[in-house]
């Protein structure tokens, strides 16, 4: 009995100290983590919105989807961006940023937050630069801020009316990547959440 109590207490103590350490670090890093996330969002917005965008402003959220209006230098709204969330990812929550034209066509899609498995799920989420080693050695390579990804680029230029994976014959289809089916579905789900919200706005 005394032994059990001693063991329980020592595990309890380790957990307590660990929990306290986590709570402390969590509280201390909350503001800097938020600031870092905001900076990342601002950088990402530049990539999915047209180059003429002079400023972005947060617009009201619809159905849990955050919208951002992009204005050109005359103050005219030229595009919108929206953050869609899906919980279907292999590693949990996944967020996409979708750029939309005023008539609700997809400008570009990028994944801003995810916990997919590197090398497998990330095939559906990451944009990889296409550079040649020889060009880099010769100093000829340039940085491409928005490199291609066959899956994510399949959404671009099409009307934001909802998508489905190839095989389901109805609606607009995109082709999933082998080895990354779950991540593809999560990206699709998040993009569709944006499409739904955009549709709701249009209906008003």
């Amino acid at each position: 009995m005394k032994e059990i109590l001693r063991l329980t207490l020592s595990i309890g103590l380790v957990c307590l100290v660990g929990g306290a350490a986590l709570a402390y670090v969590n509280a201390k890093t909350e503001a800097p983590r938020q600031a870092a996330a905001d900076r990342t969002l601002a950088d990402s917005l530049k990539l999915v919105l047209p180059p003429e965008t002079a400023s972005t402003a947060q617009a009201p959220s619809v159905d849990g989807v955050d919208f951002y209006d992009a204005k050109d230098s005359t103050g005219q709204t030229i595009a919108r961006a929206a953050v869609g969330t899906s919980r279907l990812g292999f590693g949990g929550e996944l967020k996409v940023l979708v750029g939309l034209t005023p008539d609700n066509r997809v400008l570009g899609v990028m994944v801003t937050e995810h916990s997919e498995t590197p090398g497998l799920g990330t095939k559906a989420t990451d944009r990889k630069a296409q550079k040649s080693l020889w060009d880099v050695l010769a100093g000829k390579a340039t940085d491409d801020a928005f490199p291609p990804n066959a899956y994510l680029d399949a959404f671009a230029g099409r009307p934001a009316t909802g998508f489905s994976l190839g095989g389901d014959s109805q609606g607009q289809t995109v082709q999933a990547i082998s080895g990354a089916t779950i991540s593809c579905k999560a990206v699709l789900d998040a993009v569709n959440a944006v499409c739904c919200a955009a549709h709701t706005i249009e209906g008003r």
Binding site: L7, V14, L22, R33, A36
Partner: peptide, 25 residues
């Protein structure tokens, strides 16, 4: 007798702290 659960807790705490610090700084 309880060293392994204790080690797992310590490792998990360490990893989570590293994750939070990296996200922040």
């Amino acid at each position: 007798k309880v060293r392994i659960p204790c080690y797992i807790v310590i490792i998990a705490v360490f990893v989570t702290i590293v994750e939070m610090l990296m996200a922040a700084y």
